[in-house]
């Protein structure tokens, strides 16, 4: 469950932390609460996992990870669980999800693979294939970015 105050904190935190000496004081004043109350509430939201991570979202292309590929694997059942665990151990894999099959889509294990070049992404996929024994996969590169935003939660209330 999430309280009204926590929703207010989500709204204000998604505007970004101000670059001033006491950023939480500046935010607390806008919320009409004390700095201590805000800091305690944020720490509580971290410990409950509502805030998965507190800090900077960094643009990885800016850091030399210029290529990324969505590599999707055709696999089912127990094999999918085993492969998901193997893939998660790869440092080059940022995200690994098993997704529901629908509309005839059969490549249900999804991995986001990051490298310096497209060829490096292919190479990582080949290594993942050998490590897992899965041979049916697709390497999907993004050729155009149409939208990339941070989600704004609780804006319609």
């Amino acid at each position: 469950m999430i309280t009204g105050l926590e929703k207010d904190i989500v709204r204000i935190l998604q505007e970004g932390l101000p670059l001033v000496s006491r950023p939480f004081l500046a935010m607390a004043e806008r919320l009409g609460i004390t700095e201590d109350t805000l800091i305690d509430a944020i720490r509580d939201m971290q410990s409950r996992g509502l805030i998965r991570r507190f800090g900077a979202a960094v643009k990885h292309q800016a850091l030399g990870y210029t290529a990324n590929a969505m590599v999707v694997w055709k696999v089912e059942g127990e094999d999918a669980i085993r492969a998901g665990e193997i893939f998660s151990a790869f440092a080059e894999v940022s995200h690994c999800y098993l997704r529901e099959n629908s509309g005839g889509w059969q490549h249900s294990l999804f991995t986001m693979v990051h490298g310096k070049t497209g060829e490096e992404c292919h190479q990582i996929a080949r290594t993942m294939s050998k490590a897992s024994g899965l041979t049916e996969y697709l390497v999907l590169f993004s050729t155009e970015e149409l939208k990339k935003n941070s989600m704004k939660y609780f804006t319609e209330e």
């Binding site: 998604q14 944020i42 509502l50 507190f54 850091l63």
Partner: peptide
């Protein structure tokens, strides 16, 4: 530190400074 963060925010190395939320735990 503040000057570095300002510079890296302006040139978009830092996309956002704040909370990264668990959408499911927020009920989404």
């Amino acid at each position: 530190i503040l000057a570095r963060l300002e510079r890296m925010t302006e040139n978009h190395t830092i996309r956002r400074l704040g909370g990264i939320f668990d959408s499911r735990k927020l009920g989404y």
